Computed example of a mutant assay.
Amino acid sequence: MAAPGPSRSGEAELMRQVHVLVEGATEERLVGQVFQPELSRRGVWLTPVALKTRRAVGRPHDKGGVSKWSKIEHDIRALLRNSAVDTVTTMLDLYGLPSDTPGLADAPAGDAYARALHVEDAMTRAVADRRFLSFLVLHETEAWVLAAASELSELVASPRLADVLQAHVTAAGGPELVNDGPDTAPSKRILRAYPGYRKVVDGPDAVELLGLDALRAACPHLDAWLKRLESGPGGNTAP
């Protein structure tokens, strides 16, 4: 009989360790269900870590996950103190960031990708650690659910839902470009089209059904982040 293979924890020890700072349960499930299975095959072990300084219970989402950049930075630096971690990254919504987040006040208007990159670069410079890789979701993780409109429609048994959500994506030019207004953000569009939408369950399940390759093809900003995670510590190209 063949000897048993390495345990899951043993496999993790042999991989590059990446801690992903996320806002809550939805993002934790996305990391575990969608990103971890694929990246683990490429030598990257993702561990989601929820912000310790999230909004008070009942606070509206459009007020942001936390009130100050200093609280996010505190959690980033706490994760960086673990020398066993190769990379610390963020998976935070651009929509709802604290107003004092580095680069947010002078971010370019108009081009969503340029805006996200500008703020990510400013965050990277503020933390100033080669093991830190900033990433902001355009504009919130429900954009990825819009990419999985057909899968969500099947999941909740609402045939018309796919057409409604795909129309939003087509009009914007892509799921990552659906805007971040308080009434027009991806999550608000999904809830208007399907009031029974369960963010923590339905969203990750639909994206998992879509598959990571298809999601990356539809969301170039997400794809660029994952490529950097796959390339080496801190998102830098390995020698």
Rank of each mutant, 00 (worst) to 15 (best):
A107I: 09
P102T: 05
V127C: 08
T89V: 06
H118D: 03
D106F: 05
D100K: 04
V127T: 09
A128I: 07
T101P: 00
A107L: 07
L117E: 11
A122I: 10
A107N: 03
T101R: 00
Y113V: 15
A78S: 15
D86H: 12
L104A: 12
T87M: 03
T89G: 02
N82W: 05
D93M: 12
A116L: 11
E120H: 08
V85Y: 02
S99H: 15
L104W: 01
D86A: 15
H118W: 06
L92N: 01
A109T: 08
T101D: 00
A116E: 04
P102W: 06
L92C: 06
T124Y: 09
H118E: 03
L92S: 00
A105G: 00
A116P: 07
V88P: 08
V85F: 00
R115E: 02
G110Y: 08
V127I: 15
A122C: 12
T101A: 03
Y95S: 14
D100I: 11
L94S: 00
D111S: 14
D86W: 05
R125I: 04
A114T: 06
S83A: 15
T87K: 02
E120T: 07
A114D: 08
A112M: 15
D100E: 05
A109H: 13
A84H: 12
Y95M: 13
V88A: 08
D121S: 12
D121F: 07
A78W: 06
Y113D: 11
G103F: 10
